[in-house]
Design a protein around this nucleic acid. Structure first.
Lengths: 245, 245
DNA sequence: GTGAGTTATCGTCATGTTGACAATAAAGAG
DNA sequence: CTCTTTATTGTCAACATGACGATAACTCAC
């Protein structure tokens, strides 16, 4: 890695988190209101400096927990990508490593004291310019949305937006919100239940809602995200299979 | 991003590059032999420190150019992911941002002076333990291979391993080398030429090789990697289409 | 030259997957 | 009990894919 001469410049390193969830069929992102300059009063992604002795994912989880007041984050956290360090912070070159959290809706505790106030905002309002983000966070959010969309294409991570148990309709609502499309309930049901290694029936049913009760499912064991292992492709079939002979 | 108090620790940041190519049907990676401690004499990924005022991709390209003696790198360079900073370098916490280069075979200039000697090595020999890599570079290489494999699944980047113009058979050799499988030439031909927005016929043919001459293709304009834009999915179809009504 | 070997390309066909959509099941509301 | 709502099962035609036969168009050995 190091060649030799050029002064090993040191950079402040931050982690930022794009936390996504689906509330009432609408895709939401977690944002904080900045209390200090620069961009004071503007919305930004939650995040903060990586501390000495910390790893990236660790720092991202810690920052998110601090700024939401939530101890154990639900959902799936992964690294998205790194940005900078050139010219993305008016105070100087700061490298940031963005992360992506796909999570079921969880309440953000009203942060006390000096902590920035975090809240859920519809992604739509950021994309159409109603809300503006600090730094290059709009870019990061966009990349995160692209990543989320493509994750749903092949991985079982759509379920990360749901709780432990969920109905096919709830899962479909996730896909519809993230992709911004409407899907045929019957074909979606066939695909979801028909994909080997994706879902597992719990045997239990919903009750109390309008309409016919729905079966409750959970992620199949082999589809559950194993820390460290890349999320396996279960949904989209391989482009082409090796030939037999 | 920054909350406030915790001392904004600064980290040395390096870029590492996993450069892949296919030579004679075998997937190769570019490695350097380290001339300094730690891991002196061991193989490692090319890379080095990010300099002040540089962006990541920029740094990765510069380091690779320096260590191979090649001015304008061919192929497609993209960010892979970040590693650390905790405990991956015996000298202290160093954050590294790994990159991935998919390139046609190019000659590595015999580096003069104090530069580390770079050369192509079959990926196979690293995976089976014949060759050992410094730091966490084996892990990074593995992640890079996973990324490369999945890129071929949906993006047109398989062509990044070929030159400007190539035959279907050359392209197939790339897929076979990266995936480690054999593919049916006839079905591959059908898929490659039948995918809209992927290939474009040049009208020219190969000549001089054994067997029937092959038509030369190039990447379709809309499939060419545009700097900044994410590589669009052209090969694998969407998991599910929005419903009409 | 000529035939053999080699590689490229086109075609065929059975099977599997998908999109569109009908029909039925099982609840709650009135 | 009937209507409305949502879940789930089926059906069917269009399309994509895997397996593999058949040709086409070259090079090379003789």
């Amino acid at each position: 890695m190091p060649a030799s001469h050029p002064a090993p410049a040191r950079f402040p390193v931050t982690v930022d988190v794009v936390a996504l969830t689906v509330r009432d069929g609408v895709l939401n992102a977690l944002l904080i209101t900045r209390l200090i300059e620069p961009f004071r009063g503007k919305l930004a992604l939650p995040g903060g400096f990586v501390l000495a002795g910390e790893d990236l994912l660790e720092a991202a989880g810690r920052e998110l927990a601090e700024e939401t007041g939530v101890e154990r984050l639900p959902g799936h956290l992964e690294q998205l990508g790194s940005y900078g360090p050139k010219g993305r912070d008016p105070r100087g070159d700061v490298l940031t490593v963005a992360h992506l959290l796909l999570a079921p809706d969880f309440p953000v505790l009203a942060a006390g004291s000096d902590a920035e106030k975090a809240a859920w905002y519809p992604v739509r309002e950021i994309q159409d310019g109603t809300l503006e983000l600090a730094f290059d966070h709009a870019q990061i959010l966009n990349d995160a949305l692209e990543r989320a969309k493509s994750k749903l294409e092949y991985s079982p991570l759509g379920a990360a937006f749901c709780g432990e148990e969920f109905t096919i309709a709830q899962l479909r609502a996730v896909y519809e919100a993230v992709w911004g499309t409407r899907l045929d309930p019957r074909n979606f049901h066939r695909k979801a239940t028909g994909t080997p290694g994706f879902l597992e029936e719990t045997g239990r049913m919903t009750t109390g809602d309008a309409g016919r009760p729905a079966a409750l499912f959970r992620l199949a064991p082999e589809a559950r995200p194993t820390a460290g292992q890349p999320t396996r492709a279960v949904l989209n079939p391989p482009l082409m299979r090796p030939r037999e002979s």
